[in-house]
Each structure stands twice: as structure tokens, then as C-alpha cells.
Design a binder for these strands. Sequence first.
DNA 1: ACGCGGTATTTGCATTTGCAAATATCTTGC
DNA 2: GCAAGATATTTGCAAATGCAAATACCGCGT
Lengths: 150, 150
Amino acid sequence: MSFDFTTYLPYLINRTGVELAGAFSREIAQHGVTLPMWRVLAALHRRDGLRISDVAGLTSIDISTLSRLIGKMEKRGLVIRRRSPEADGRVVTVVVTPAGQAATRAIVPVAQRYEAIALAGFTADEAAALKQMLIRVYGNLSGDALDSAA
Amino acid sequence: MSFDFTTYLPYLINRTGVELAGAFSREIAQHGVTLPMWRVLAALHRRDGLRISDVAGLTSIDISTLSRLIGKMEKRGLVIRRRSPEADGRVVTVVVTPAGQAATRAIVPVAQRYEAIALAGFTADEAAALKQMLIRVYGNLSGDALDSAA
DNA sequence: ACGCGGTATTTGCATTTGCAAATATCTTGC
DNA sequence: GCAAGATATTTGCAAATGCAAATACCGCGT
């Protein structure tokens, strides 16, 4: 049975993600924002007013978890829930407050610094190639490729 | 403020990892094993008798979470906790039972199929390059690079 | 205008998580 | 040989998670 997890792609992705998340979380905690909250803020960055379900899709956060997370962010004054007055009454859109924008502005440089650390020693071409390949992998996974395989 | 999360490496890694984990989890549930449990089994594959803390390092699972997880796996008969008789009495080693080995054998092909799906359309060279780059990124993150940056 | 299937979000609930404190054991210096 | 500090694991506890059921609303067909 030839199986070596140390070169197994899901393993490599998982451990990298965990490591990245851990270190970054600790640092942004100083700004009163958790990692999932930052993900929401990043998704809404210059794209305010998305629906809850859109944010869920963008952030890969489960929609029920996100519903509660938005509640916490509202309490902290980072975002506001708004029911579209004219449009579909089922939809809730999320709007970033000035405080939320300030938090985003504070964290963006930290995020960029972490990306730079992660990509230390990479040429611009290598970094672009890595990102492009991750996008391709994601594309392979989303959609029906998986369902048909199951 | 130039920040586009759609090309932001941690974002790309996170969403890929979440997608991969979700689909795979659902499938291995049929074998009575959760994704964290599979990670433990994979770490111990042909490497039985690792300490709890070694498994934690390999799997990126928090050590306290892992302690409880090993307990559940013991109840399910997948592994056995063993205190080294002669060596350091603080250390607990984890040994895979025949049932655990059977579960591993059943899941390895599934895992390999998922990797193949994820890497669909990749040449062998591309896949190797991706893995190598992820290993480099992980190397950039572990250790002191992060501490000195914080 | 009314009911019915469909979609968006929230809520109930049991499980999982991770930090910090507790426990158990080892090791070193005296 | 023993106290003091280090290391490995477990446990307490509060918070986060995700599935499934509940709720709220839409829009079509009649």
C-alpha cells in the first residue's frame, strides 16, 4: 500500500492553512477581530452589501455559523445587517460600518505582511504560479466533479 | 488600499482546504472515521507507536484536542494508548489496532482518488511543483520567521 | 386571492475546539 | 535522596461549529 502522507496534497494544504491561520489570528486579535471576522471583512472589502449567503460562499464559512458570526460582528459595531427595503424580503445584506472599515484598514497591512512571509524566497512568477494552481485545484473541487466521483 | 482577497494566498489555501475537507469527510464517514481521525491514522501509517505530541505535530491538531480524539478512537477500537513500560513514564504512544489498519486500508484509495480529482489536468511536473511550493511555504511559516515578524 | 413548493436566514442542539490550569513524571543540582 | 524546574498528557470550561429543523418570505399556477 503505497501511501505517504508527507507528499499528499490535502495534507500539505491543511498544515499550511493551519499554520498560517494560527499565527495570523494571534496578531489580529489585538485589533479586536477574530480570523473568521477578518474573512468576512475581507470579503466585503469594497464590495459592501453582499447577502449572507454570498459571504458564506466567498469565505467558505457555513451559513449558519456565519449568521451567528454576523451577529457578533454587529454587536462589536463592525457591520450592520440590512434587509433590502424594496427587493426580496428574505435577503439580508451585510454592510461594513466605519469602525469595520477602520479595522480592515488596520489589518490589511498585517495580512500583506503575512503573505510576504509565506512567500519568502519566491519569485513573482513562482508566487503567481502557485496561486494559479490553487485556483485550478479549487476549480477541480467545486461543482459536480466531486458529486460524480462519490 | 490595494487589497484583493481573491488572489490572496491564505484565502486561496483556506478555501481549497475547506472544500477538500468537506467532500472527503462526507465520504469517509461511511467507514466510521472522521476527518481528524483519518489524519491520525495517516500519520501513524507504517509509523506506529508515535507519541501523542508527535502526532499533534504531524497532523496540526491541537494537543488537547488530540488527547480527546485519541480517546474516541480508542473507544471505536481504532488505536490503543500505550505507556512505554521501560522508557519515560510521561509519554503515551499510540498504536493502530488491526481494525484501525483495516480502516486505513479502506480509506487510502479514497484519499488517492481525491488527490487525483484535485489535481485533474495537472501534469506530473506541475503537481510536483505545487507540492514543493507548499512545502516551501510551510517552511517559511514554521519556526521563528513568524515570531520575529510579530 | 390562495395554497404550494422553493429559497434565505435563523435557531436548537449536540459535538468539537483550544486555551489555560491541573496532573503525572522526569531531571538536575545540591 | 530531595526539592525545584522542565516536559507530556489530561481535564475544566467557555466559545465555536455544523447539521437539521424552524421560520420568513417569494412567486407561480390556478
